[in-house]
Simulated assay, not measured.
Amino acid sequence: MISDSRAVENSSAETADPDAVPVAVVERVAAAKECGVEEIPPLYRSVDPDALAGLVAGGGEGLRVSFSHAGCQVVVDGEGRVGAAR
């Protein structure tokens, strides 16, 4: 298993809009896998996108959520930073 900081370093992005976090997750996973977003399975297979956006909206700087999606470790924090690594 990789560390959360490595996932953020390898392929990360920040979004100010919590509702954009699910899209950013798919984009970061695609970047980490070096493929198009259309090749990534729907996010709902790994995590509830609405619940993830809700966590980020109310999470603040102490929030850190990690999960696996499409063979990548994903990290999302309360500031809207999204990272993914294989």
Rank of each mutant, 00 (worst) to 15 (best):
Y44R: 09
V56G: 01
E14D: 05
G71T: 11
V74Q: 05
P49W: 09
G83I: 10
S68I: 04
E38M: 04
L43C: 05
V56N: 02
V25G: 02
G36A: 02
Q73N: 09
R81P: 06
L63S: 06
C72M: 06
C72N: 04
N10P: 00
P22C: 07
L52T: 04
S68A: 09
E27V: 15
K33L: 15
A32I: 13
A13S: 15
A31K: 10
V26P: 07
L55W: 13
T15C: 05
D50Q: 14
V47S: 00
E79W: 01
R86A: 06
V75F: 14
D50T: 12
R81L: 05
R28H: 00
S3P: 03
E9S: 13
V65I: 15
I40Q: 03
Y44S: 09
R86Y: 06
A7I: 08
D48S: 13
E39S: 08
A30L: 07
R28C: 08
A85D: 11
S46M: 06
E14N: 11
V82Q: 05
G62Q: 08
V26D: 01
M1F: 11
G59R: 10
S68W: 11
E39C: 00
S5Y: 10
R6N: 01
S66G: 11
K33S: 07
E9I: 14
E27S: 15
P41F: 01
P49Q: 03
V75A: 08
S5K: 13
L63D: 08
L55C: 04
V26Y: 05
P18T: 09
P22H: 06
A31C: 08
L43H: 07
R28D: 00
D4I: 07
V26H: 07
S11C: 12
M1Y: 02
G78W: 12
G58L: 12
A20R: 14
T15H: 10
A57T: 02
G58D: 14
G80W: 11
P18L: 07
R81V: 04
K33H: 09
D17M: 06
S3A: 05
D4V: 08
V82K: 08
L43P: 07
A32G: 05
P18D: 04
G58Y: 02
E27K: 15
V76M: 05
A20K: 14
G71L: 14
R86W: 06
D4F: 06
K33N: 12
A7Y: 03
